[in-house]
Simulated scan of single mutants.
Amino acid sequence: MDKLASCFVQHGAPSQSFKPYAPQRSTTQISPGRSRSVPVVRCAAAHAATVTAPKVTSVDVANVGSGSFDFERYLSATAKAVHDALDAALQGLRCPESLSESMRYSVLAGGKRLRPALAIAACELVGGPAAAATPVACAVEMIHTSSLIHDDMPCMDNDALRRGRPSNHVAFGEPTALLAGDALLALAFEHVARGCAAAGVPADRALRAVVELGSAAGVGGVAAGQVADMEGEGSAPVGLAALEYIHVHKTARLVEAAAASGAVVGGGGDAEVEHVRRYAHFLGLLLQVVDDVLDVTGTSEQLGKTAGKDAAAGKATYPRLLGLEGARAYAGELLAKAEAELDGFDAARAAPLRHLARFVAYRQH
């Protein structure tokens, strides 16, 4: 734990420092001419009806039913488009068949595709076309999948189940799984460079996206968070600050990079990109808090992965440090903070991101 504490003190978070239980509504105006009126709409009735919701401080959950935006249809269409693009990107790879099959096994296994949807929605938020963000969306999913393959391996979390079926290393063996994760990480950056050029994205925007994604995958994000997570196991109790460091890096930073990169390739200005970044930072932490709650309250069948594994490994989690109700209350604060960052944008363009935040807050798996 001394190493983890030292890392936290020396390096801190990759962007702004956000403290739990201190919600503060943004007052920064993006553009005086933009409307701040945003309809409150339902993510998905099934989720609100069957899931114990976090305590929300600024959104009246009882009224989350008005409006006409069909988020389920939007998410389904985006997921299919990204899946098809990923399928195409992973065809005809010049490598041993076992490596190609291992890569495709995990990337095309399904999942909610939240990070790709976030990249595309952020691009559209600032007025860019979805096609400009599709290479970024695919790259984000490749990076995310790479991290999951490595995370499941015996040297990390040693989890045999992922998305309802055997983890990659169980299906293909540890050496092939390790190399599949490495190959996906490398392919992600190649895909951004080639795909952005083909979509007509200016080179300077594509380069900024590469920098964002590289930082999020490496020492500024997933790699740093994973090491801190492992070093915190079985040592002195991990406090909230150290836990936040782990999840800002391991989870939130890639979510943040997906959104920021989408806004960048879409042509967003600096102020717009910063609001999108902050929205995604809170969304990434919300994703982790809800994951921690579901690890306690869900089953392996519901989650598609081993339930209760964090508690069994003695890991620090938000329910463990805050209690189950405290974790749910914190999720509500993060949801309110994320939505506040969208207030200065056009309401119709912001609707997918607003729904996405609520979908994450009320999901069951």
Rank of each mutant, 00 (worst) to 15 (best):
F8D: 05
Q10V: 13
A13L: 12
S15K: 08
S17K: 12
Y21L: 15
G33C: 11
R34E: 14
R34W: 08
V38P: 06
V40K: 09
V41F: 14
A45H: 10
A46I: 00
T50A: 13
T52R: 14
A53N: 09
A53M: 14
P54T: 06
S58Y: 11
S68Q: 07
E72N: 15
R73K: 15
V82A: 08
H83A: 13
D84T: 07
L86D: 08
A89C: 10
Q91E: 12
G92S: 09
G92F: 13
R94E: 11
R94C: 05
R94Y: 09
S100H: 10
M103E: 01
S106E: 10
L114G: 00
R115C: 09
R115Q: 08
A117R: 02
A121C: 11
C123N: 04
G128R: 02
A132M: 01
A133E: 03
P135K: 05
A137Y: 06
C138F: 05
H144W: 06
S146C: 13
S147I: 00
L148V: 05
M153L: 04
P154F: 02
P154M: 01
D159W: 03
R165A: 13
P166C: 03
E174C: 07
P175R: 01
T176F: 00
T176Y: 00
T176E: 13
A177R: 01
A177P: 03
A177C: 00
L178R: 00
A183H: 07
L185Q: 14
H191V: 12
V192T: 02
R194P: 05
R194C: 09
A199I: 07
V201N: 03
P202W: 07
A206Y: 06
A209V: 07
V210K: 01
V210N: 04
G218P: 02
V219T: 12
A224T: 12
Q226G: 12
D229R: 05
E233I: 13
A236N: 08
P237L: 06
I246S: 06
H247S: 00
T251I: 11
L254E: 04
A260S: 08
V265F: 02
G266S: 03
G269W: 07
D270H: 09
D270A: 14
V273Y: 00
V273D: 02
H275M: 11
V276H: 03
V276M: 06
V276E: 00
R277L: 14
A280K: 09
A280I: 11
F282D: 11
L286H: 04
L287K: 09
L287W: 08
D295L: 06
T297N: 00
E301D: 12
A307K: 04
A307W: 01
G308R: 11
D310F: 10
A313W: 04
K315M: 09
T317D: 06
G323Y: 01
E325D: 14
G326W: 04
G332N: 04
L335F: 06
L335N: 03
A336Y: 08
A338G: 02
E341N: 00
L342H: 00
D343A: 14
G344H: 03
G344P: 08
A348N: 04
A348P: 01
A350L: 10
L353V: 09
R354G: 15
L356R: 05
A357V: 15
H365V: 12
H365C: 15
